Structures are given as structure tokens and as C-alpha cells.
Computed example of a mutant assay.
Amino acid sequence: MTEDTVFKHLQSTLKSEHALPVQSCRVSMPVQRPWGRPYRLVEWTTVAHGDVPSHRCIVPAESTEADIARAVASHVPGRLYTSEAS
């Protein structure tokens, strides 16, 4: 699986469903935990004004490029943790 293929699937998915501007996407090699199924870490950046620098999610290691693109497109940001004091 290559990041370029995931990025192409992501761009076509987002064009047809969303207006989310994804700038880059990285997919890790499969990671085997001491328990449970192996997974991949997906990290992407957007060009939205005032947005956080990057988003992350995990997907099962056997996910296809299209599955990963759908996971990124359907991502709902959670809590934002920063090191700055409010």
C-alpha cells in the first residue's frame, strides 16, 4: 500500500462528498500490539484556515486504500489537547 494511492482515493472521495482540503496524508507500516489486531496509524493535514496542524486515526492493518480514504473523509475531530495553558 502506498500513501500516493491513499491520497488519490482520498481526493476523489472528498471531491464527490466534501469540501475538506486535505494537504497531505501519511500511512504507517502495520503495527502489532501485544494484544488485539494489528493497525496502521493514518495522519493527515488540512489547509483549512485556523485548523489544527494534523489529524490522526487508526485503522485495521488489513484496510484497503479506499477504506482508509473513507475513514479520513468521515473523521469527526475530537477533543483538542494542547500544551499551552488557557
Rank of each mutant, 00 (worst) to 15 (best):
E65L: 05
P53M: 06
A61W: 01
Q11I: 05
A71H: 03
H49W: 05
V27F: 01
P53I: 01
A69Q: 00
S63E: 00
P21G: 00
M1F: 04
T82V: 09
S83V: 04
P77I: 05
Y81C: 13
G78Q: 11
C57Y: 09
C57K: 14
V52Y: 07
P53W: 05
V6N: 01
V59D: 02
E43G: 11
S83Q: 10
P77G: 12
V76D: 14
A48G: 09
Y39L: 11
P30K: 02
T64V: 04
C25I: 02
E17Y: 06
H49E: 10
L10N: 02
A61Y: 03
T64M: 06
W44G: 00
A69R: 03
G78A: 12
E84K: 14
Q23G: 05
Y81P: 14
S16L: 07
S28R: 03
H9A: 10
C25L: 07
R26A: 09
R26N: 12
E43V: 08
W35Q: 15
L14A: 04
P30W: 02
D4I: 08
G50D: 09
T2S: 15
L41H: 04
M29G: 11
L20Q: 05
Y81D: 13
T82Y: 12
Y39H: 12
I68C: 02
D51L: 07
I58M: 15
F7P: 02
V59K: 04
L80V: 06
P60H: 13
T5A: 14
Y81I: 09
Q32A: 12
E62G: 15
A48P: 06
R40K: 07
